[in-house]
Design a protein around this nucleic acid. Structure first.
Lengths: 230, 230, 230, 230
DNA sequence: GATGAATGAGGGTTCATTCAT
DNA sequence: TATGAATGAACCCTCATTCAT
């Protein structure tokens, strides 16, 4: 499917075909961002892309697969955008991660609402793509906190956490991005603590305790935020 | 829906009509519980109900409205099922509320998954119904904690809270209802604290502090749960 | 599906619906008579019938079924047209039967060519209809000759016989119906003798011998036909 | 097909092209043997052949022509396979011819059913190929019997004869090749007599009488077969 | 000669809704 | 109120063919 290292250099035609594929993908991203799956027709997508609608099946083997590809694409972009540097404390890095997350969503509002935050079921095949994004999000946060994202007791709480971030982001976008990104991050951090405590309540591990203390320490060093529970 | 305050006793025809309406509503609830909106046809619903499909438009003015009605119905049932007695502490009552919530979801699994937890957008008109449920859920929790659900600083965190409960419930149902309802409630309570702290972080009100202390008090009296933040 | 004796008299609407059904059926018969299955579109049929094309699926559940219905219809007509009186010798009755057969084919030339003589496979479901016609044809001839059409040794020869009649009829229609119907019948009779002798060769039964003698007797009493094998 | 009498030795490219052509032709024969014309796509054929589907139009000028070519090819093979030696009486040679016919059909069952016996109309251009086969078959039999296959009075009966052989062969293949080839040949011979008598009935020529006597003589010398008309 | 990307007409079917009965 | 025949827009997909490379 993808060209390997031993491939001959792509010919002009292959290049053109790839371009067409991208045009279709972009057009689909655009359309699916604005209207629900069922309301977007392949004809519209092809028209947006300026190509014959038959090409859609040629390149993507049907509307469903194209949709899934779109979801994968936007989520890949999200993942790339939330890769953050390793500087600073874990808490600081989580904050930067979340901040980048919100920035990305704000920069791709339509796509964010319809292809990231609201996981419209659409179709089985796309569902997989949604799930992958979610798992990836959890893995990212866990890594920053030195937690094992596969740990069973973390599954539910972390899922809850990412979902809470998404839902709040959704409302935030609807509200015209108020309150500030910083406040949104604060909210998320509070929920993150809640999530970890939930997990800790079920199975109190050393790693969890360390992560929680890390988060608390970070919070205290930010004087504008009230000390927890005091 | 229509009969006014001057109500004459309903004629036989009105009675029969109401029965037909209910048959359609029940059939629709059943069908929409099992398949996404777009995959359910009015023909199927009418067939399930054993009536002519033309009646669907007659009684509900179209598929969309019927769907919204279905969402309203199931959510009304949910609301009724989570009305709890006023005994005990606020914390205890919140727990009972959540417990009842999970029980209801477990008892109506299909409907829960498709009509409550996953707010398939479906259509603008149904979206309203989903939103109403969510608002109602928030109001319920707030009332138990003596909080004003209209308070702006509570909007986002509380939305996050209900959403987190729903998402975890969704996974829980998928997992065959493991872990126990009690553990699920614990999870939710931890997130509730997180939500309130998030709100308190933004605008520290007396009511919030009281609610938080209430929750902490409750938690301490349940020795198996670890003390917060230690 | 069909109304039974206890049915209430059909309402006007049922009557109208049945009329529509017939219009569709007639239009389909006409179209399928002129062009092969694959070249006839449902749109054309509906247009010919002067109704919406959606009705085609409504009444017949798809093009394939409509086609099969058409085949059944024309073959039913053929069967009706070849019911002959019981007067005369067996040989005379067979001749009348064949004569009627040719007359019918000539009167419905297009349909005959495409829906009777050339059993375009079209589709599994239509194949059944073609087969039924053939079986019926065999049964008819056998009955006239006091033969058991289920007799295994008769299967192949009789199949061959009806097929030979059909093929010759096809050429006959192509030739502008020359030679005369009488000559065509003579041809068929000769093949019928061939068929029965083939069967007799394999399993010489009394019934077969009787039938053969019957045919020979008939032939001798028609002086213009040459005595066999002299 | 193209290279003329002045033939230079074929270049490598011509050779390769011819190979491609053959690959395509073989793949097409295989595919058309298994599914009706309309259900076979050029893409499948090209894939089977392992070449680009564009080549199909290049080499054969379209699907229809390729199909006709396939019919010609298989029928050419059939013709070759039924060339028999000149030993023995006319009757014996006819039998050998028919025997070879059945053997070939059995050895190429799929192709036989779909490309020889059942003359699916497919398309005008293929029809010609089917007709040619049929004419050739008639000519072959006539030659063995010293009959002029162009004789008008023979047209219809002989057509009937070959068609009867084909139809019985079709059933025979469906029945798992029962009864034996010998019995099938017997059947055919009986029909051949029927055909010739039909022709003789219309126009009693010396050649026909000779042929009939030849066949009868052959039959008598095969004691297990009952004498005709006794 | 060979490739396969591109075309786009054309297909059959589904389905929510309407409306005469 | 109930029926279900009728409508026809809209859908996605298939596919033979073309043609630049």
């Amino acid at each position: 499917m993808s060209r390997t290292a031993t491939d001959k250099p792509p010919t002009k035609r292959q290049l053109a075909a790839e371009q067409t594929r991208q045009k279709l993908l972009d057009a689909a991203l655009d359309n699916f961002s604005r209207r629900p799956y069922a309301e977007v027709t392949v004809g519209e997508i092809a028209r947006s892309a300026g190509v014959a609608h038959g090409l859609l099946s040629h390149h993507f083997n049907g509307k469903e697969n194209l949709y899934a590809e779109v979801v994968r694409k936007i989520n890949g972009q999200l993942r790339a955008a939330t890769q953050i540097t390793t500087e600073g404390s874990a808490e600081a890095r989580v904050r930067r991660h979340l901040s980048a997350h919100f920035d990305f969503l704000a920069a791709h509002e339509d796509a964010a609402v319809n292809l990231i935050l609201r996981r419209a079921e659409a179709t089985d095949i796309a569902w997989e793509a949604f799930e992958a994004t979610r798992r990836e999000g959890i893995r990212g946060i866990c890594a920053l906190l030195n937690l094992d994202s596969e740990e069973p007791s973390l599954q539910l709480p972390m899922r809850g956490f990412v979902v809470v971030c998404d839902e709040m982001a959704l409302q935030w976008l609807r509200n015209g991005r108020s309150p500030s990104t910083g406040a949104m991050v604060d909210f998320c951090m509070a929920f993150l603590v809640g999530a970890l405590e939930a997990a800790y309540g079920l199975t109190p591990t050393r790693a969890l305790r360390a992560a929680l203390e890390e988060l608390r320490r970070g919070r205290q060093s930010r004087p504008e935020a009230p000390a927890a529970g005091r």
